[in-house]
Deep mutational scan, measured.
Amino acid sequence: MGFKLLSKLLVYLTASIMAIASPLAFSVDSSGEYPTVSEIPVGEVRLYQIADGVWSHIATQSFDGAVYPSNGLIVRDGDELLLIDTAWGAKNTAALLAEIEKQIGLPVTRAVSTHFHDDRVGGVDVLRAAGVATYASPSTRRLAEVEGNEIPTHSLEGLSSSGDAVRFGPVELFYPGAAHSTDNLIVYVPSASVLYGGCAIYELSRTSAGNVADADLAEWPTSIERIQQHYPEAQFVIPGHGLPGGLDLLKHTTNVVKAHTNRSVVE
Rank of each mutant, 00 (worst) to 15 (best):
S264D: 10
A179W: 01
V194H: 01
T140D: 02
T114R: 00
D64W: 04
W220D: 01
L173W: 11
V132R: 02
G122F: 14
S264G: 10
E172N: 13
A130C: 04
M18I: 04
S137H: 15
A192T: 07
R167A: 07
A259V: 05
F116K: 09
D216P: 08
D164G: 10
L47Y: 10
S7P: 01
A259I: 14
K102F: 15
V146Q: 08
V171Q: 01
W88R: 00
L185C: 05
L5T: 11
L96Q: 02
N211E: 07
V75R: 05
G2W: 04
Y12R: 10
I74S: 06
H260Y: 04
G177P: 01
L247D: 02
A136L: 13
R46Q: 04
E80K: 12
P69N: 05
S62V: 04
T14W: 10
D64N: 03
Q49C: 03
R128C: 00
G89P: 01
A90C: 08
A25C: 10
V187D: 02
H154E: 15
S7I: 08
Y175V: 10
V132P: 12
D77L: 02
N184K: 01
A90Y: 04
A136S: 13
A129F: 09
S139Y: 00
I20C: 04
S181H: 01
R128P: 06
A25E: 06
L13W: 04
Y34A: 11
S193Q: 12
I151P: 01
V171W: 01
M1F: 01
A179G: 09
V121K: 06
R46A: 03
T36W: 09
I58D: 10
V124L: 03
I50T: 07
V194C: 15
V112Q: 00
Y231A: 08
V121I: 15
G2E: 09
S161A: 11
A218K: 02
T36D: 03
L97P: 00
K8P: 03
A215F: 06
A87R: 00
D85I: 00
A213W: 13
D29W: 06
L195W: 00
E147P: 14
V166L: 10
D85H: 00
D183Y: 15
R226E: 09
T261C: 11
N92L: 10
L217P: 06
G240E: 02
L81A: 14
F63V: 05
D29R: 09
V189E: 06
T207M: 11
A59R: 12
V166D: 06
I74L: 05
T182P: 03
S139H: 01
T36E: 09
A94L: 09
R226I: 12
Q61A: 09
F168M: 03
S193M: 13
D214M: 08
L6H: 15
Y34W: 09
A95I: 06
T93M: 15
Y202L: 08
W55H: 15
P138S: 09
L83R: 00
V37P: 05
G197E: 02
S160L: 12
A15S: 10
S70V: 09
T14V: 09
M1L: 11
H115R: 00
S205T: 06
G78A: 03
S205W: 10
H260S: 02
L13H: 03
D183F: 10
V256A: 11
S70D: 13
T153I: 01
E39W: 05
A178H: 14
G246C: 09
L143M: 02
T140S: 03
L250Q: 04
I17W: 03
D119L: 00
S113T: 13
A192C: 06
S223P: 04
G123H: 15
I224A: 14
G32M: 00
L185A: 11
S22D: 10
V67D: 11
V212M: 10
G78M: 09
A259G: 07
S31H: 06
G198Y: 04
E225H: 00
A130N: 15
P244I: 15
E101I: 06
Y202G: 11
V54Q: 14
L159S: 07
I84G: 05
P170A: 09
S31T: 04
L81V: 13
F168R: 09
V187I: 14
L73M: 05
S161I: 07
D119S: 01
I201H: 13
G198K: 01
G122T: 11
E219T: 10
E39L: 10
H230P: 09
H154Q: 00
Q235K: 13
A200K: 02
I186W: 11
L143D: 03
L195V: 08
H180T: 01
R76S: 08
G197D: 02
Y34H: 14
D118G: 13
Y48N: 05
L159I: 13
P138L: 06
E219S: 03
G245E: 05
G78H: 04
H252L: 11
Y48P: 06
R46I: 07
A19N: 04
S137M: 07
Y175W: 11
I58E: 05
A178L: 13
G122M: 01
V124S: 14
V28P: 03
G198E: 04
R263E: 04
L6G: 08
E172F: 13
A21Y: 13
G169W: 04
S193D: 14
F116D: 01
L5D: 06
G131P: 03
I151G: 10
H154K: 03
I186D: 02
Y34S: 06
P170S: 06
Q61N: 06
L185F: 03
G53D: 02
E99F: 03
T86P: 06
G32L: 09
D214Y: 06
S16G: 13
W88C: 01
V166E: 09
L24H: 12
N211P: 13
A165N: 07
E147N: 15
A66I: 08
P239Q: 03
V212Y: 11
T36C: 14
L73E: 10
L156E: 01
T134Y: 12
S70R: 00
A130K: 01
P239W: 06
Y68F: 02
P232N: 15
F168N: 10
L83T: 14
E225G: 07
K102W: 14
N255L: 05
V194K: 07
P190N: 02
L83Y: 00
D164T: 13
P190W: 04
P176D: 01
S205F: 05
G246T: 07
T93L: 00
E157T: 14
D79H: 07
H154A: 04
S31A: 07
E44V: 09
A234G: 11
L24I: 10
G198C: 03
H115E: 00
N262Y: 05
L159Y: 04
S31P: 07
D77G: 05
A51T: 02
F116Y: 15
L47Q: 04
R46G: 08
L13C: 05
G169K: 12
P244H: 13
A213R: 12
A111F: 02
G242W: 04
I17A: 03
F168W: 10
V237L: 13
A94D: 14
S155V: 14
S191K: 07
V42I: 03
A165E: 09
H117L: 00
K251N: 14
L243T: 13
V187E: 01
A130G: 06
R141Q: 04
T134M: 12
I50M: 10
R110S: 11
A192F: 13
S193R: 07
W220V: 10
S264K: 03
G2Y: 03
G158K: 10
G53S: 04
A95K: 04
T207G: 12
D118R: 11
Y12I: 01
R142S: 05
A179M: 15
A165V: 11
Q49W: 12
E150K: 04
I104S: 08
H241R: 01
L247R: 08
D183W: 14
L159W: 10
G65L: 07
I20K: 11
Q228V: 08
T153N: 00
G32I: 00
S62C: 13
V171H: 01
P170Q: 05
K251M: 08
S162T: 10
D214L: 09
G246A: 06
S139Q: 06
S162M: 02
R141F: 05
I104N: 01
A111T: 10
S38V: 04
T140I: 02
E145R: 10
W88F: 11
Q103N: 10
E219N: 00
T254H: 09
R263H: 05
V171G: 09
P107W: 05
N71E: 09
S38C: 10
G105R: 05
A218T: 10
A87K: 00
V189L: 12
R110E: 14
L250N: 15
G240W: 04
N184D: 07
L81F: 03
S56P: 04
S223W: 02
D119P: 00
D85M: 00
T93N: 14
S223E: 03
L195A: 06
L250G: 10
G43Q: 03
K251A: 06
Q229A: 13
Q61P: 09
S208Q: 12
E225T: 03
